Simulated assay, not measured.
Amino acid sequence: MVKYHYEGYSAGKHTVLLRENFGSSKVYAQNAQSVLNKATGFINAYDFTLNPYRGCQYGCSYCYAAAFSPNSQMRQDWGNWVIIKENATEILKKELHSWYKKNPDRPPSIYMSSVTDPYQPIESKQLLTRYLLQVMVPYQPTLVIQTRSPMITRDVDILQQFQRLRINMSIPTGSEKVRKDFEPKSPSITARLKAMAKLRYSFPYRDNCEFRFSITVTPLLPTLPEDEADFISKLAVVDRVVIQDFHASNGRSLIASTREEALALKQKYAWWYNSEQQSYSNFKNKLMAMLPGVEIMEGKEGFGYE
């Protein structure tokens, strides 16, 4: 397997040159051999994962995807680089065409995305996720989009053309103070909640169509007591809320695990983490009590389409 050398992250001759700087991030472009990859592990209920980018500018402290960085330097600098899969639309067309030749009566199920955010800041300029959605519409896969970005509302016109769609918005905490500690580069909680409300009411009922909406409170971070009731009440805008604790800690590369940055931050919130199981249970019970019309699901089960 070819080992690529990224300008700024590798010594010697570079095989992948820096294309531009976008904000604080180094941006690279690279052709992908495939964009539909077999879904495994936590999301093995799907046929494929689809990641338009490699890396993520949000750089959340707890993100397990840092483990899959091209090299150790880039893993340490998670959030400050992104790789655009430059040929992604052409590859996706070929892969979907190939799928339907073999499976003419069964649309594939696709999870977008598992190790990046399809609506991270570079998408505002690149439009790659939007182009990929346009490619998918004629093939009508079952599609789940996982993001923490209100930018997804930009693509309502295309999203409305799908027949089986679930949108998952990640909001791990109801407190801005906590968000700024654990994921300082991410959009505000208010912006995400408003985006989900806009999305929920942008999809009128149509025969033979299923539009579903989740808020994934994953990993479950502390919400300050004074913010809790208001936050939970606003989750009523969706049909499903998913909770999940941190991935297990593991320092090795290529292992999905909670990063050291997040583990250090946990000390700041000892009032929550010293009794983590009880804190989790209390929050879950409040969700169930305050959101009687919303599905409350945990872990892997909550990330399924159904």
Rank of each mutant, 00 (worst) to 15 (best):
Y111N: 14
I158H: 10
L287S: 11
R192W: 04
P204H: 01
L291W: 02
L159N: 12
F211I: 02
C209F: 06
V115Y: 01
A195K: 11
G304H: 11
E261L: 10
A270C: 03
F283K: 06
Q30V: 04
M151Y: 12
L96W: 01
S257T: 05
M297K: 11
S175L: 08
T190Q: 14
I296Q: 02
Y62D: 00
Y64K: 09
P108C: 06
Y58T: 02
P292D: 11
E228P: 06
A65F: 02
Q140N: 05
T89C: 10
K177W: 08
S61M: 01
N21A: 05
S34R: 01
G174D: 09
K93G: 04
S109E: 11
G79R: 02
G23R: 00
P70K: 04
P52A: 04
Q73L: 08
R164M: 07
N285Y: 07
E210P: 03
E295R: 10
L165H: 11
T116M: 05
Q30G: 00
I122C: 10
Q140S: 04
G174Y: 05
G174C: 11
D230P: 08
Q163K: 13
E176H: 10
I232Y: 14
T173G: 05
S113W: 08
Y269G: 13
S175N: 14
D230S: 15
Y273L: 09
V2E: 13
K102I: 06
R212W: 08
S98D: 07
E276Q: 15
R179I: 09
Y280K: 13
K13T: 02
S113N: 08
P138C: 12
R212D: 04
S279Y: 12
E226R: 08
F22P: 01
Q140Y: 03
T147N: 06
L220F: 06
S257A: 15
M196D: 10
T173N: 05
R192F: 04
D230M: 13
S214C: 07
H14V: 01
K234V: 09
E276Y: 14
E95P: 00
S25P: 05
T190D: 15
E210Y: 08
P121T: 05
S69F: 01
Y269R: 10
T147C: 12
Y6W: 05
T173R: 03
G8M: 01
A88K: 01
P118I: 14
S175P: 12
G23A: 03
Q33T: 13
F162P: 11
A197P: 09
T15D: 06
E301W: 04
M288A: 09
T153G: 04
S114E: 10
N51F: 09
S186L: 01
I171W: 11
